[in-house]
């Protein structure tokens, strides 16, 4: 078992490439529309759970209102596509910039606060954004939502088939993973984790804590915004009921279930928790009750999440020492 773990940790990069390679060829073997849809939605949730894992798992800042940025991104894209017939790329850019801008505003206020004060503030932000979405009817059509959002268009090419949308999502997910991967395996990643472990000591070591917190907060808001923009064109319909605090919590739960501070865990956690509710669909109205009970049991049985206690970098470093000493 240990050997397997070490082997896996050492070749994590190759396994990851293999995994995404498989995802890339999968559509050629998968005929079911339902399966394609599920996979696309899974990837969307993995992307958002990545964003929360970066923020909560690596930096240790907990928010329960991050879905607000998804909402901002989704509405930005929906309005630009529907009213101004923008192409998808500039839409994405606008969604990223706008959610990043609000992320910056919120972080400037929230990150000055400690622990729960900040968490509750993000909750308040989420509620306010949702109420604006409901009540600014001239722009958002209120509770009716915006429907008939057309499919993504890149350089005049319309991506209307399920398969092309699947690939679009895959590309977005890979870009997100590359971004987060680069950050956490760098000096910035070290700084971020140092802040999580001991903020005061990090400051004493010359780390500009506020700067890093802001950068990570804004980045994670941008990822949510991008996910929202994709979501709007994918579903072709959005309404404020999607961007609630509970939805935000669900994504957080995915990141925690997978294991905070472990990206592989996030992939597994978000996928399982996206598919699980689908699988217990036969429970009909009992579904949410069972889901709640499952969450409690999960937390009690595995408080660290599936892979929260596994640190691949540490396993690699350990293995390199053993090799040097000629042991095992």
């Amino acid at each position: 078992m240990k050997m397997v773990k070490v082997f896996f940790a050492k070749n994590l990069k190759w396994f990851t490439i293999l995994f995404f390679g498989l995802l890339a060829v999968l559509p050629f073997f998968m005929t079911s529309n339902y399966g394609m849809r599920m996979l696309t939605v899974c990837m969307l949730y993995v992307m958002m759970a990545f964003s929360l894992n970066l923020l909560t798992g690596f930096l240790g800042v907990m928010t329960i209102g991050h879905i607000a940025f998804m909402g901002i991104g989704a509405y930005t894209a929906a309005i630009l596509v529907k009213n101004y017939h923008w192409e998808t790329l500039p839409c994405y850019l606008a969604a990223i910039l706008l959610s990043g801008f609000f992320g910056l505003l919120l972080s400037l206020a929230a990150l000055k606060l400690q622990g729960y004060y900040m968490t509750i503030l993000t909750l308040g932000f989420c509620e306010i954004v949702r109420l604006v979405e409901i009540n600014w009817e001239s722009l958002t059509r209120g509770a009716l939502g915006i429907s008939g959002i057309s499919a993504p268009v890149f350089f005049g090419i319309r991506l209307s088939s399920r398969r092309s949308i699947y690939y679009l999502m895959l590309v977005l997910l890979i870009l997100t993973l590359l971004l987060i991967w680069s950050i956490i395996n760098s000096k910035a990643g070290n700084a971020i984790m140092a802040i999580r472990e001991d903020e005061l000591a990090a400051r004493a070591m010359g780390i500009h804590v506020f700067k890093y917190k802001t950068i990570v907060f804004v980045l994670s808001a941008m990822i949510m915004g991008l996910a929202g923009a994709f979501y709007a064109q994918y579903m072709t319909y959005i309404d404020p009921g999607v961007f609630t605090v509970s939805a935000s919590l669900n994504i957080l739960i995915m990141a925690i279930f997978g294991g905070l501070g472990n990206l592989l865990g996030t992939i597994i956690g978000a996928s399982v928790l996206t598919i699980l509710p689908e699988m217990i669909r036969f429970l009909a109205e009992y579904r949410n009750l069972i889901y709640g009970i499952l969450i409690i049991i999960l937390m009690l049985v595995k408080p660290d999440g599936l892979l929260g206690s596994v640190n691949f970098k540490y396993i690699r470093q350990q293995a390199s020492v053993q090799k040097e000493n000629g042991g095992e």
Binding site: I256, Y286, N288, L289, G292, I293, I295, I296, P303
Partner: peptide, 23 residues
């Protein structure tokens, strides 16, 4: 366990209670 886990657990309880009442 970290405080975060406790927090999520209370949220799980909230879901259970709400759905129980609804059902």
């Amino acid at each position: 366990a970290t405080k975060l886990v406790g927090l999520i657990t209370t949220m799980g309880f909230a879901t259970v209670i709400e759905n129980f009442v609804m059902l």
